[in-house]
Amino acid sequence: MICADTASPLLQVAGLRKTFSDGQVDREILSGLDFTLAQSEMLVLWGPSGSGKSTLLNILAGVLAADAGSVDLLDNQGSTWSYGQDDAQATTRLRRQLIGYVFQFFNLIPTLTVAENIELTIKLAGNASAGLRTAADLREQALAKADTLGLTSLLDMFPETLSGGEQQRAALVRALAHQPRLLLADEPTGNLDASNASRVMDALTDQLAHSGCGLVVATHDPAIAEQAHRVIALPC
């Protein structure tokens, strides 16, 4: 188990509210959610379908605006990024440099090779990436991570030619390539066999240990929940 640095919260979520409406009926998904996430901490969002796990992840990722509340994320230089109700456009830089996202269904860009998928993340992060590392450094680390996950021979291949496990590992390398401060994972092992699931989770926890980033995982998998420092159960 990795020890979370609870003294320095990486992420602070306060009073987060989100309601969806179909024009006739309003459905409150998040009702005043508060929590913090420390550096190197793994937090699991637990709850049935429709409980708001993906909605929360999307708000944390800055692609969805909450109706109320705030999200504060600490970057490598000690600056705090406040968002939550901001327009998605305003959080573009945040997403490029500070956030890594792993989805259930692999989500590689089908028209880019594995190497290009990884390269895209690095390019988008730019030279001002968290940790003041250059693109060359990031590329080197990403290739090392790809090698660890057995992807070196697959780098020039397009996603459609890879197996599900290979795609998810490639997606993981892509999500970690720019050394994000906050890792978000939406059912990262939901579509994998036990062996591949284990490799993916090992890679995620390894990233926590070495980079000090925080990890928020939405899952139904009790095995993942057991690895977490904390579990937040979202009500139905």
Binding site: Q89, T92, R93, R95, R96, N107, L108
Partner: peptide, 14 residues
């Protein structure tokens, strides 16, 4: 749509 969602999360600007 899935690719665009991913690109959006990755911070692809307008």
């Amino acid at each position: 749509q899935r690719s665009w969602r991913l690109l959006s999360v990755m911070g692809l600007a307008l």
